[in-house]
Amino acid sequence: MKVAIASQGNRLESNIDSSFGRCAWFIIYDTENGAMEFIPNANKDLEEHAGKAAVDLVLSRNVSMIISGEFGIKIKPLLDSMHIQMVVIKDSIKTIGQIIEMLDNKKKKNATT
């Protein structure tokens, strides 16, 4: 399963971004093989429809879950209709590394049970 994470920077120590459409970087993480891809968000300074462009960009990588600090009001129904799972983490003090660790722990836990 591929997961997209909205990030403020392109390192594992970067914090999660509080908005999805206008975040600085997207991290595409493959939970199956641990592959990671960092994509700069070229659309973050668009006057409008930044969220829509971000969804298109992320969906071109076939993700099934998106993690962000918040999702905009236009993005929620869009992702709902595409059956993409949204995860909102309110406190943006969590780093990308911590989130990936959490996903790995969950996978390990599921493998043992």
């Binding site: 709902d80 799972q85 995860v87 983490i89 309110k90 406190d91 969950k106």
Partner: peptide, 21 residues
């Protein structure tokens, strides 16, 4: 883990948090 998440596939019952399990 105090996260919120949506559940797009309504026909599958949710058992665990998608982030921390």
């Amino acid at each position: 883990c105090e996260s919120y998440f949506s559940h797009p596939h309504k026909h599958i019952p949710i058992k665990e948090c998608p982030l921390c399990g």
